[in-house]
Design a protein around this nucleic acid. Structure first.
Lengths: 106, 106
DNA sequence: TTCTTAATTCGCAAAATTACGAATAATAAA
DNA sequence: TTTATTATTCGTAATTTTGCGAATTAAGAA
């Protein structure tokens, strides 16, 4: 049997999951989804990390496609990347469900 | 406004997501769910990594509670941790859905 | 006991992640 | 132009992750 190549879909799912793989980033996403606040400054007041660290986390979420940022000087407004969350729901949500509902047992 | 503490739930979600944050581990979970194979040896023949690296990934999945291992010498049988996947579906699946369906927009 | 098979652990190296404060941009207001 | 505000980038450090091959463990078979 041949070695499997990893598929683009597997890579994409892992990328999304990895971006969610930090409690601060979960908290950020929850804030953005609940619309409690959207500004870097507001979030930095709520989260127990330095502003510069927050910027890094926001950047990772942006790079992975989970959020979008819009500059409205002197602040920056962040929001959920809705287009990609449809894909995340399909890929990662579908994956979680399919594993949870699978019958394979050893 | 006070600094938020991260909740246990946020920590748990991040832990689960992080464990899924690698394409090899996604592939492992898919194999186990589809019951294509459950043995370390079988998986090491399919996946493009060394056996020792596979062991590390399996260990991380086990530590995070996503899979279980059972020793049946001279092989080891792995399978989905069904109990925890119910929680994963609720926490992480629920989270993904709630973000995807949220209305917050900036 | 010795040999074989299967999987893990060890030892190491390279790369990525996480975090902070200081320095830097970039814009609006004075 | 100078000042104030906001967010990012830079420089640095500590830790974690990822990966490999060699060595080790563990059990059954010869």
């Amino acid at each position: 049997m041949q070695k499997q190549e990893l598929t683009k879909e597997q890579e994409q799912m892992a990328r999304f999951a990895k971006a969610m793989g930090h409690p601060i980033r979960i908290a950020i996403l929850q804030m953005l989804a609940s619309q409690t606040c959207c500004f870097h400054g507001d979030m930095s007041e709520l989260l127990p990390i330095a502003k510069s660290t927050l910027s890094q986390h926001l950047n990772e979420l942006k790079d992975a496609g989970l959020i979008q940022g819009e500059i409205t000087p002197p602040t920056v407004k962040y929001c959920i990347n809705r287009e990609n969350w449809a894909l995340i729901e399909k890929l990662l949500g579908g994956f979680i469900e399919s594993v949870a509902n699978s019958k394979g047992s050893c």
